[in-house]
Amino acid sequence: MLEGTIPSRPVYGALEIRPGRLHLIVADAEGAEAILDLAASAPPDFFAGAQIIYLPKKSGDKFVAGLEQLAPAQLYVGPSYEAALPRLRRVLAGAHMGLQVYLAGTEGLMGQAMLEATQAGIPHSAIQAEHRGSTVRRVQCVHCKGITEDVTHDPFRCAHCGLHLFVRDHYSRRIAAFQGVRVDAEDPGNIPESVERFR
C-alpha cells in the first residue's frame, strides 16, 4: 500500500491479461516481477504478440534472463526512461486499435508512460498499471517548475532552483509528478530535519 493516497493520485491495480492484438509492456526495476506474475496466467501465444520495454535501474540484470525466457516479440532493455522514450513513442505512434498497455514498477515510470500513451490516443480503458518496488517520488517544484526524480527524503532540495521543498500528496497526471513546496517559506532558514519517507 502506498502511503498518502488522495483523490488526485491514481489508484494502481494488479495487471491482468486482456484480449488485444498487440501488448505493450513497460516496466522498471521490480516491475519485472509483475510481468513474470502476469506470464503465469498468460495464454501460450501471448508473448508472441508482446513488446517489452524494460529499465532495470538498480535491479541490474536480476530479472533480465527471466524476461528473455518469456520470448516476447521484442524485448528492449534500456538504461533510462529518457533513453527509452523515442522507442516508446515510436511504438505508440504505430499502434492501432487493439493495443493493450501494461505498466509496472515505480510511480514515476508509470505516470510518464501513461501520459505518453494517452497523448497518443490510447483510451484509459486499454491501460493498466501495477505498482511494484520503490516508492520514490517524482516531484515538481511549484516555484521553478523543475522536476526532481527519485525523491527519497522529505524535505529535499530541488535539483533545479535549490529551494528546500516538502513533498505534498497532491499529484498531477499531466505532469506525472507530486508537488513540492518551499518548506521554510514562512520562516526562511528554519528547515526541518530531512527524513527518508520513500525508498
Binding site: I6, S8, K145, R168, H170, S172, R173, R174
Partner: peptide, 17 residues
C-alpha cells in the same frame, strides 16, 4: 492553488487537498 498543476484534473482530483 496552482492552475498549471491542476489543469486537466477532474472535480475530485483538483479538490484532493
Amino acid at each position: 492553488w496552482s492552475l498549471d498543476f491542476d489543469i486537466g484534473m477532474n472535480f475530485f482530483e483538483w479538490h484532493a487537498p
